[in-house]
Design a protein around this nucleic acid. Structure first.
Lengths: 338, 338
DNA sequence: TAAATTCATGACACCGGTGTCATAATGTCA
DNA sequence: TGACATTATGACACCGGTGTCATGAATTTA
């Protein structure tokens, strides 16, 4: 045998037509049991595998999903946000379970990514994953919708299409953090993240946090808030600036674990004890969170379930079934940092 | 327009043949500049994308690499080993840089994975990634070789084909750890990992460690060794069993960071101070390592370079170029655990 | 026993590109 | 000006499957 075996080779050896081979291999009931067995045996012997390109071309589908990972433009090449890495893992697993392959691709938010994968028939649908300034994406979402591209996204909401989003109940998560502080009588709260609506996820977390505090007659002082993106560095610097401005607080809610870890570093450097002087709560429950010193109290987003939901919903869209918006319940994981 | 635009549609609007459209879009010099421009404009307007399935089918290649991730069968669904997650990130980046897509797939070591992706023309080559009992894989490697499948692998060596492997100089890394202990006069050493040759990487690390100690007239006591696979749990239990058997040591080399982290937990529980009573050194330098308490001294494997090398070498193989075996130099990252 | 139904299979167009060969038009050189 | 090279394009087979329609044999029904 020179190249790879094709269905014609099998047909030749089995003494049947290529059509029959194709049918046999796909377990069509239209083929005689005996013939099927002969075809299978020969296929196995020749190490035959269906050519996906030919098959996909004909059927106009690919059994493949594409995952586009948007990174904070700031986070240079060094490290990928561990939360997304965890999501990637669970999405990969969920795809495998459904018999789909997963194409992974990093994207910068600005690039001309919309529908590339789906238009070129490399994937049946797209999963969008990333923090970041999703508002800029809306026009791209619209392009995707216009072209009838199947996609779901994590976190960001698509105008008029809540069903395309899977996300954690960030508002509820923020409330959990506030409840926790109040239960421990830590009412002089600081917040680090982005309280503007640039980053809708951080914004919701802050809103929930603020509202729950207000419900308990605690007001958060605007001076006790600092902006940060989701990196350890950013959290560190934001916290340092609060300290440098001599701003006092006994509780700190960080919009993500990485920010919280940076914050703890800054607090330690300033000889502020965590949790004695300041209780810290993060968000995400990344793997690192339980290993830092002190172990970080955080609001968990269940990445396993999240990945599954994204894949399941996307497959439903592809199959033309109805999908509902999915809000995942966050859980408070108390550890020693608070 | 009903469905997606094809090159025939463009040909129609541009008033040329479909052949010319195809040539124009691929920047063939055989096509007139003016015609090319017209074709490009129309393609843009129609939101045309080359159908990858058709193109791949004809050219018999896919511009895609497949990454097969083998997991320790023991590590249940919960978490993926962070070291491999980091590798996955760097491989994804390296692929993007080379204009290749990446298909990611989890595999159990036992499954019938060989060549699935390449045979079915979904990928031009395969990257194999995983710790684990690579010895069992040799027959599968042979199958791959026989079928002339292009692949590279991390860590494991393929008989007679050193060029297919990219790995860290595990032996040299083990020596670094030993040097470090000797420099700090910690010569009563324990080792946790797998000192048998089931896991060739762990084995090499241990060999380097042992040989360097011997070169300094230090002998490692067999009783001070315990087996573990690369999980925190496993490291924890292995260390506990040493402690339970009342075995004393003042230095501990763990074959991976996860093991080291588990070991530190066990030591702490037994009121053994790290690094005062026992100095601990790990291997990998995963992200968590710098956050644990105390921060973990470890032997770094540069995942960014590793990912790049894997991709570059695989592409060379695919292009039929010559490839040499690649040993990456490990670096000792001293932190407070030693 | 003729007609209808079921079963198993083959022939063939088709998916949407790419590569080869043929062809026409224009330019170049002896 | 005839021979030859160059440039731009079209026609067409082909990649390896899948889906439809036609066909013939075996079986059931009227």
């Amino acid at each position: 045998m020179k190249g790879k075996a094709t269905s014609f080779d099998i047909a030749h050896y089995a003494g049947v037509s290529q059509s029959t081979v194709s049918r046999a291999l796909r377990n069509s009931h239209l083929v005689n049991e005996e013939t099927r067995k002969r075809v299978f045996d020969i296929a196995k012997k020749l190490n035959y595998k269906v050519d996906k390109n030919a098959s996909n071309l004909r059927t106009q589908q690919s059994s493949t999903l594409a995952l586009l990972l948007f990174e904070d433009p700031t986070s240079d090449e060094s490290q990928i946000n561990p939360f997304f890495l965890a999501m990637l893992g669970s999405i990969t697993r969920a795809c495998a379970k459904e018999g789909y392959d997963l194409l992974v691709s990093f994207q910068s938010a600005s690039a001309d990514w919309q529908a590339d994968y789906e238009d070129s028939h490399r994937a049946d649908g797209i999963i969008l994953l990333g923090y970041g300034d999703y508002i800029d994406y809306q026009p791209k979402f619209n392009t995707l919708l216009e072209q009838n591209t199947k996609f779901v996204c994590w976190g960001a909401t698509v105008d008029n299409r809540p069903d395309l989003t899977v996300c954690c109940d960030n508002y509820g998560g923020g409330k959990l953090a506030a409840e926790h502080f109040i239960a421990h009588s830590r009412t002089d709260c600081a917040f680090i993240g982005d309280a503007s609506d640039h980053s809708p996820e951080f914004f919701s977390r802050f809103q929930g946090f603020k509202d729950e505090l207000l419900a308990n007659n605690v007001k958060i002082n605007e001076r006790k808030m600092a902006n940060a993106i989701s990196t350890e560095e950013s959290g560190y610097h934001a916290t340092r600036s609060l300290i440098a401005n001599n701003i006092k607080f006994n509780a700190l809610f960080a919009a993500s674990d990485l920010i919280a870890i940076g914050a703890i570093r800054a607090l330690k450097e300033a000889n502020i004890n965590v949790p004695k002087d300041v209780a810290v709560v993060g968000f995400d429950n990344i793997a690192i969170a339980s290993y830092v010193n002190p172990p970080l109290t955080t609001i968990e987003q269940n990445t396993t379930v999240a990945g599954q939901m994204l894949v399941e919903n996307l497959l439903k869209l592809i199959r033309g079934e109805e999908v509902q918006s999915t809000l995942l319940a966050p859980i408070l994981i108390p550890r020693r940092s608070s």
